[in-house]
Design a protein around this nucleic acid. Structure first.
Lengths: 207, 207, 207, 207
DNA sequence: GATGAATGAGATTTCATTCAT
DNA sequence: TATGAATGAAATCTCATTCAT
């Protein structure tokens, strides 16, 4: 049939890859539009033009696409974050790098999503609880824990700090994409200052 | 037959009030467990022990209970916030009062909610985006705009600030209720410091 | 409490009679609007302003009001028909009298119903399968059988003749009430001529 | 695997056609038994043995099957009527042809319908206002208007005449199918004579 | 692997009827 | 008797998933 080590370059494999991609793209759009709960598998496959049964050749359920999407985003964002994490000489530099990286990522995701919006519609907001965002924030959370653990951050309550940073960044990003023009630097600046200013005022925890 | 001055306290009225409460309580619990989207009217009514049709004697849909819940929470928190807003001599005092008030309110709500939960369930987290939280945060948003407008806060980007404060407070509260014992003061302290420290570092906006 | 032979003139009895009437009136209107199947008990009692439970103090079910309505109409129409039946010297006179009586009855019913129609609505037609109409036609059917049996009508197939007369009269009446002004005499004339002309052409049956 | 010229006759297509037919047949029977209003989608689907969801793969609602049924009957009867309409040299011939054609059609339909009925049921009558009957009678109405307009019929009130003919034919047909044996010719004869005799007695309208 | 019809559990909602007050 | 809330059976419809082709 095929040698054991065929790369995915045969007609069939190309098609398989393309279908998988199509499903992911559709799922991304649908989750962005409707949110995880309201989205149905039918919504997703309708957008691909594939047959409903085909969905199940690739993913076992709605949940599984969700996870694939999350994995994908995490995989894309992790190296960026890692670079910041490793390159940053201190906490200030780390926050600067990480926060700006996130805002850039968020703006990009948003524009990708907005581009697919049919015009002259009541312009629904992109949902925040997108698999992508969630996955990215998991990365961020780990990263912040790492930074504190490494000693680059003041020894404050790590869970609270991570929660605070993520919350702050996420919701300012949400405001950001509502403004025209989208001002990534301005929003990042605001978030960075608040975090850094805030952290410097935080009570030290003796672990 | 009946006393001349019958208050609306017949068995009927009592029962109606009790049922309405039962439905609200059940809805609170179900939204908390499953989130708004995943929750079904069936879930709610099943939890009350009432007949399915009875639900519709009180609310026309899931959405309507949701709103009732939001109204209820907002109605309870609004005066608290109002008091802080009016009594606070300056921005620092306002943030202190409002944030602490919110954490206290959140802890109370959580305990009320937790009390209703049947035991031995797969440990669901309290959902963000609960009607209560949303309604209350609308109040907060308005307050912050008011404070800045009034001149009690430094002239920074009000939308971003409101978004940041709310996000921060909400997500730290979420962490708070997951810890035992629940430490309202500690969490409030953390949040207040971060906000005040952050604000003092923020760039001033010329309006 | 009450003597055994109180006439229905006490306050209570008056009220009972009034309620019964109110329900009948409402049912007539509702059946006329929606037809028997689509009409609900709720529709009927809503129109009376009474409580839902009260309905069941008077009628055991939707079907029972339907029958009461039919009985009522039959009771009102039967004497008219009987007069024609008894007074008519021959078949021609009988048909003339009976048909005209029906058209007058139909026009009256229609106007009664139309008067209750809220204006500026898509003016739904009055349903034909109203209890009243059905009951009246049962009377007519019997009457026609009687006339033939009595020998005043030519000995034709009685079931077919009754069906034909009723069908003809009912559907021409339906057309009649769609025209403005409503021309009872014209419609009756048409129906009478068709029936009499038709009957004279009919094959004689040896019973 | 597959011949090059596969007609749409795969098992799938065959099955789809069969299911569609099964639903139509079931709907015909159910509407006949219960009437349009009382019939439910459940009743229809239960009779087919298919799963409830399957119904909705074929029709969106009870109304839609109803229309499909009407379309079907009309499509079958229309050419018959058209032939009579075009071939008839005069009004008498037209009525003769059309009425007989209808009685034959009705008897056939009735037998088709009766064949599907499960035995030992509480002897339901064939309902008037079945989709078939309505659709067919629309055809008839148009024909009669046409005939009068064409000058083949005496200039009488066309709407009344159409209504009268249809009513008469329909209700005599209804009687016809209740007798054993079903006597198509006898019933048709009766109807034709009544119509023709009736028309000749009708007042002429000056248009 | 791709297809799309079939499936049936389950969600929403209505409504006749009962029954405590 | 009048009331109107409670009841629960039943109807409509959706959707994830399966499976024959």
């Amino acid at each position: 049939m095929a040698t054991l080590l065929t790369l995915p370059t045969g007609k069939r494999e190309l098609n398989k890859a393309a279908n998988r991609l199509a499903i992911l793209d559709a799922a991304r759009a649908v989750f962005g539009d409707l949110g995880y709960d309201a989205a149905t598998v039918r919504d997703i496959i309708r957008r691909t033009g594939l047959a409903s049964g085909t969905f199940y050749n690739y993913y076992r359920s709605k949940e599984e696409v969700f996870e694939a999407l999350a994995d994908d985003a995490a995989a894309r964002f992790r190296p960026i974050l890692r670079t910041q994490y490793e390159a940053a000489p201190d906490f200030v530099a780390y926050i600067n790098g990480a926060v700006r990286a996130y805002f850039a990522f968020a703006a990009e995701e948003y524009e990708r999503w907005e581009a697919k919006r049919p015009l002259n519609e009541p312009q629904p907001l992109m949902r925040r609880d997108t698999p992508e965002t969630n996955a990215v924030f998991d990365e961020v959370r780990n990263s912040i824990h790492g930074v504190i653990h490494r000693g680059d951050a003041p020894p404050v309550d790590a869970d609270y700090l991570a929660a605070a940073c993520i919350a702050l960044v996420r919701d300012i990003a949400e405001q950001m994409v509502r403004r025209r023009p989208i001002d990534v630097d301005g929003a990042a600046e605001f978030a960075v200052q608040m975090i850094l200013g805030g952290v410097s005022a935080l009570p030290i925890v003796k672990p």
